[in-house]
Design a protein around this nucleic acid. Sequence first.
DNA 1: TAATCAACATTTGTATACAAGTGAGTGTAT
DNA 2: ATACACTCACTTGTATACAAATGTTGATTA
Lengths: 229, 229
Amino acid sequence: MATSRKVCSSQVIYQDIREQILHLELPPGTALSEIETAEKYHISRTPVRDVFKALEAEGLLEIKPHIGTFVSLIDLDMISDILYMREVVEQSLFKDLAATHDKSHEYRIQLILQEQKQIIKSDLPIEEISRAFIIADNRFHHTLYELAGKQNIVTFFGMINSQYERFRTFINQSEKGDLLRLYHDHVAIWDAISRQDYEKLSDLISHHIYDGFNASALELHKHPEYFRT
Amino acid sequence: MATSRKVCSSQVIYQDIREQILHLELPPGTALSEIETAEKYHISRTPVRDVFKALEAEGLLEIKPHIGTFVSLIDLDMISDILYMREVVEQSLFKDLAATHDKSHEYRIQLILQEQKQIIKSDLPIEEISRAFIIADNRFHHTLYELAGKQNIVTFFGMINSQYERFRTFINQSEKGDLLRLYHDHVAIWDAISRQDYEKLSDLISHHIYDGFNASALELHKHPEYFRT
DNA sequence: TAATCAACATTTGTATACAAGTGAGTGTAT
DNA sequence: ATACACTCACTTGTATACAAATGTTGATTA
């Protein structure tokens, strides 16, 4: 379902451009030329076109025939719907997980949580910390999906989450305090799962998913040209 | 997010091959050659490659470099997870819809339901009826998503639902009775939404989504080679 | 001055030739 | 007979040339 495992040049370029878009180094609206990109990576247009098509399918590029290729604008309405799906799915999934919970995975989760703690406490520049924490954050959620026996859903979200990942980069250029809040959410969520406190769990998940989104509404004026109207 | 709106030849071929795969006219495991396909449609390999890449991203093709391109096998585990997502999302979404329900959309829904009724009662061959009903069935679900203000979710499911659509074609080669059952489900679901009977609604949705899947377990032996082990 | 049209530069779409990897099938040597 | 290696046919990957479409820019004309 995902991209094939070819070790060819196109795979490297795909990852490279994708990360540049997700980290906003290629801001929304930026024009990308096939020829320029090909020359930049010292390859021909053909593999570049493959990469562009793949990124278009992921919603990160918009190819306008005979006009140009552009980094897609962030669609807040779409992100809102993605968060809605994540909310209802995790509500149900984590509840299932709590119902069948035993202590056998305690160590694995604690390891992830400690890693997140150490990332926040490290002395790296805030951008590095933010990037590392996002990865560790995804690992936490994905591990819970896996423990619930629904690993495929991680793949599904991976296909549509690109838009959201980019938005996260935008809003997480803020403070360590936000990351610390996310970490505490994770601890509380796992605690609620362990204690099978369904009501508390439901509350925690909703806030965990939506709080960052809502709090970031104030930041949008910084780069209004990034967003679809 | 979806494919671009080019009216070029590749768009036609994409739709054509996609339908052939979904209708099992190209059974899972079938080898597709770029050259053969190009000659068949009287075009060159380049647009064919674009189509193959798009279908691979959709999970309908599997491109093995330097070996060949094959129609992907049906992954029952993945379909199971897709149905799980649909269940929890529709549970929540239709509940929201019931909460804010007014009579303003009554006519629109009744129109869709009547259409479904007429399709089943028509004298067309069973395959035609099955195909037409699947389209009308999707329209019913999509309309409810739209009324709930979450139209983007339809797009998301469209990206991952291909696998499920193909499976539906496989199991719906059965009887008119199955389609009639689905139609009655729809009527009951809309009735529960109108009456804001949340408990009944929850029950109906779960059965509506899973019953066909479970009942079809008996049919798998007909073509075991279609499925991933 | 303003409007119209045509040439041009740039873009993506397509066709074709060649490169490179894979696996089967065959021939040969042990 | 069996094991090994090589050739060959086939696949997808890549490079390049050309076609087609779009927007701009400038000249020409009313």
